[in-house]
């Protein structure tokens, strides 16, 4: 990175020889302000990230000499049922962590922004609360809610639906969905908060004009609020999608990837492969694939929601 910087600096000096000497020296001094942050970020974030990419091309147990294996680890990510399954699970989680919260968040925003709604601040504080607490604690809480004698089953029994009760996190068919719903619970408040702050910036005269044209509350929401929230929806989709794909804490605490690998996600396998099974290269390859997947999603979301000019 430092090489790129000096190159550019030389470029600028060459292109604009008329810059006064003092000004140029001031520009060099400006680097001193950026340097400490850049150094820490480069040393403890970018450099390890690049190292992980390097590890991904090797077979390495973390102790002995690493062996160059080219793209073998990547081939394994896509052919090994367990590894590839974890990627599929994380894609399912996107529906629950991103799509569902955005939908519910829009609904809540519509209700909160409606004329005559009282207690806006209180509702917002409550809806946002799950976003504040550590996901580890969220996981502990929901384990108990989904337990055999937990709240969900208690409620089912209370209305006479005993037949439907189930150990939700322990069953192959329901565990991933159950965890997904925890994600919905966590992320909805974040989406709502982004949307409400965006909706408050929409010009009130747009609503009046729409009302004048005879648009009802629902029409006003779809034709004024929704287009006005394009940027916020884009940001919410990016944040929540990253949270889904890179999830770790919640799964680690609730199911540990079980039952029978039904809820494994890349983050969990990266941790296990690297630090329990001594397959650092495989873990690194999975982490790189996860990163590429995230970048692909972020780029796609940005493209899809870009303002057409």
């Amino acid at each position: 990175m430092s090489a790129a910087l000096t190159d550019e600096r030389r470029d600028v000096a060459r292109r604009r020889p008329s810059v006064p000497r003092t000004r140029r020296r001031g520009r060099n001094r400006a680097f001193l302000y950026v340097l400490p942050a850049a150094a820490v970020y480069a040393a403890f974030s970018l450099w390890p990230a690049l190292n992980t990419v390097y590890y991904s091309l090797h077979r390495w147990d973390g102790l002995n000499a690493a062996e160059w294996t080219g793209f073998d680890n990547y081939a394994e990510v896509f052919t090994d049922a367990e590894l590839f399954g974890s990627i599929l699970h994380s894609l399912v989680l996107v529906l629950f962590f991103a799509a569902a919260p955005i939908t519910v968040g829009l609904l809540l925003t519509g209700l909160l922004m409606g004329r005559g709604t009282r207690g806006m601040t209180t509702f917002r504080v409550i809806y946002f609360l799950p976003q504040v607490v550590p996901l580890v604690a969220v996981g502990v809480t929901w384990r108990w809610i989904y337990a055999e004698d937990g709240v969900v089953n208690q409620a089912l029994r209370a209305v006479g639906l005993d037949a439907l009760t189930s150990p939700w996190l322990a069953r192959h068919t329901t565990a991933l969905i159950a965890i997904g719903l925890v994600g919905t619970w966590c992320m909805t408040g974040l989406c709502m908060m982004l949307f409400v702050s965006g909706a408050q910036k929409i010009d009130a005269s747009l609503y009046e004009a729409a009302a004048m044209d005879g648009a009802g509350a629902f029409r006003r929401f779809t034709s004024v609020t929704l287009p006005g929230l394009r940027g916020e929806i884009s940001v919410a989709a990016v944040i929540t999608t990253i949270a889904a794909l890179a999830s770790f804490d919640l799964i680690y605490v609730t199911t540990g990837g079980g039952p029978e690998n039904a809820t494994t996600v890349p983050g969990l396998l990266v941790y296990r492969l690297a630090f329990s099974y001594g397959e650092v290269g495989g873990a690194a390859a999975l982490a790189v694939v996860l990163t590429v997947l995230i970048l692909a999603f972020v780029t796609a979301i940005r493209r899809l929601t870009r303002e057409k000019e």
């Binding site: 970020y41 990230a49 992980t52 973390g62 990016v238 890179a246 650092v280």
Partner: peptide, 15 residues
């Protein structure tokens, strides 16, 4: 850096 997952950094960071 806002889009880099911790998973990518943490493996090499440990070593």
């Amino acid at each position: 850096g806002l889009t880099l997952p911790t998973e990518l950094v943490v493996i090499a960071l440990y070593y």
